[in-house]
């Protein structure tokens, strides 16, 4: 067991070495993409800021609170993007017939997928951390023991929710050749619907974002807890916000179980 873990650790170290070296090799490219990431999040935040200049609040949320909401999502999302982004390539590997190589190597299939070298650099994560610190100061969240203990757990739970949903969508590609529509809808729900408190949506959408694609646990529920707000979307206890790590784990376990079923099915039909 210890030996196995040592191998995994070694592979993972090598993987990051390659990533960082590639990023350093294509410096200009890296800078341009960093600019892109920055502008993407900046325009989203500026749009929120402009709206909240004209309107003092949205369902009781002012701009600093909305920035805190955004930064909590961004932190979880950027962890997912930094560690697990390559899961999104599975449908393409399957379509191109490149997926089979996963089976001939003596390593866990999912581990092989998330260690496929890419030009990943934790730039988005660094941006997210900076925004999170700023938004925490701005919105006047009390930084106490609850905050220090739970925020890291919540962010990791949020990243697991993101990862689990991407994994489920990727697994669907073992049955359907094209999963882009599914991916697109989940992507849009995650990127755009998490920008606002879910209490602005109709009941059905609130339920979907809580139970079916639980993006609300990435930021809305924890943010209402830490900002001492009444949870007026589903009228749940504010402590629901602390359930994110658990929700993340459950999502991951379910997604992994589905992934194993998908893998068996893929092998079963003798591709």
């Amino acid at each position: 067991m210890a030996e196995r873990l040592a191998i995994w650790g070694d592979v993972y170290r090598q993987y990051w070495r390659i990533n960082v070296l590639t990023a350093l090799e294509y410096r200009a490219n890296f800078l341009v993409w960093f600019g892109f990431t920055f502008i993407y999040h900046a325009t989203a935040l500026i749009a929120l800021w402009i709206i909240l200049q004209e309107f003092p609040s949205m369902n009781g949320w002012n701009f600093p609170q909305m920035a805190f909401l955004y930064s909590l999502w961004m932190l979880a999302h950027s962890i997912n993007n930094t560690l697990f982004l390559t899961v999104g390539d599975v449908p393409e590997h399957v379509r191109e017939g490149e997926f089979d190589r996963v089976f001939v190597r003596p390593l866990n299939a999912l581990f092989q997928i998330i260690t496929t070298p890419q030009q990943i650099f934790p730039d988005e994560l660094i941006l997210a951390l900076s925004l999170f610190v700023l938004a925490t100061i701005w919105s006047g969240v009390t930084v106490d023991w609850w905050f220090v203990v739970f925020i890291p757990l919540i962010v990791m739970g949020g990243a697991l929710i993101d990862f689990a949903i991407n994994l489920v969508i990727a697994t669907c590609s073992f049955w359907f050749v094209r999963v882009d529509a599914l991916r697109w809808i989940a992507f849009q729900l995650e990127q755009e619907f998490t920008r606002y408190p879910i209490s602005i949506y109709t009941k059905g959408v609130r339920l979907v974002l809580t139970f079916l694609l639980p993006f609300a646990f990435m930021n809305y529920f924890p943010a209402t807890f830490f900002l001492d707000k009444a949870e007026d979307a589903l009228h749940l206890s504010p402590f629901v916000g602390l359930a994110t790590p658990l929700v993340g784990l459950v999502c991951f376990v379910l997604a992994y179980w589905f992934w194993i079923i998908g893998l068996n099915k893929y092998q079963g039909v003798g591709h």
Partner: peptide, 9 residues
């Protein structure tokens, strides 16, 4: 939904 929420208050 965004505009409805903003204009409501």
């Amino acid at each position: 939904m965004v505009w409805l929420a903003l204009y409501a208050q």
